[in-house]
Simulated assay, not measured.
Amino acid sequence: MTDPTATQLRVPPYIQDAMNSSVDAGWTVVRNPKSVIITPHPAPKSKRLKAAFSLSNPPTADQVRKDLTNLGLYRALEHLQEQKPPAAQTEQAPATPAVVPPQTAPPESKPDVLACPECSKPFRLLQGLGAHRRMAHGVIGMSPKTIQRRESAARKNGKKKAASLPAAAAKKTVPTPRKTAEPAPATAPVIAEPAPAAPATGDVHSSLNHLIVFVREAEDKLAEKDDTIRELQNFKDKVSAEIANGNQSPIQTLANIMALGGEGFGTPAA
Rank of each mutant, 00 (worst) to 15 (best):
F53N: 04
T5D: 15
T5M: 05
D24V: 07
A188L: 15
T228N: 13
A184K: 15
I15T: 03
V213L: 10
M19A: 09
P250N: 13
V99K: 09
S207F: 07
E231I: 12
S143K: 05
V29Y: 02
A136Q: 12
H210E: 14
K156F: 08
S54G: 06
L232T: 09
I37A: 11
L260Y: 10
N70I: 04
A105R: 14
A198Q: 12
A131C: 04
P97K: 13
T173V: 10
S143I: 03
A61L: 04
P185A: 08
K221D: 13
R124K: 07
H41Y: 11
P194H: 02
G72E: 09
I229Y: 00
R31P: 00
L254V: 08
R31G: 01
A169W: 12
P144L: 12
A25D: 10
T96L: 15
P33K: 15
N70W: 03
G138I: 15
A200K: 08
E182W: 03
P194K: 04
S21I: 09
K171V: 05
A6T: 11
T69R: 08
N57S: 14
G72N: 06
L222G: 08
N57W: 09
L222I: 03
T173Q: 15
V36R: 05
L129V: 11
T146I: 02
R149L: 14
P196H: 02
E91N: 08
D237E: 11
H79N: 11
Q8P: 00
G262I: 13
S240E: 15
D220F: 07
A52N: 10
K172I: 00
H41P: 01
K50A: 13
Q83R: 11
A52I: 11
L73A: 06
A162T: 03
P183K: 15
L126C: 00
Q16W: 05
P94K: 04
G128H: 07
L68K: 07
P111C: 01
A136Y: 00
I140E: 09
S206D: 08
T39P: 04
A61C: 06
P166A: 13
I229E: 07
E217F: 05
Y74N: 00
P189N: 03
E108P: 07
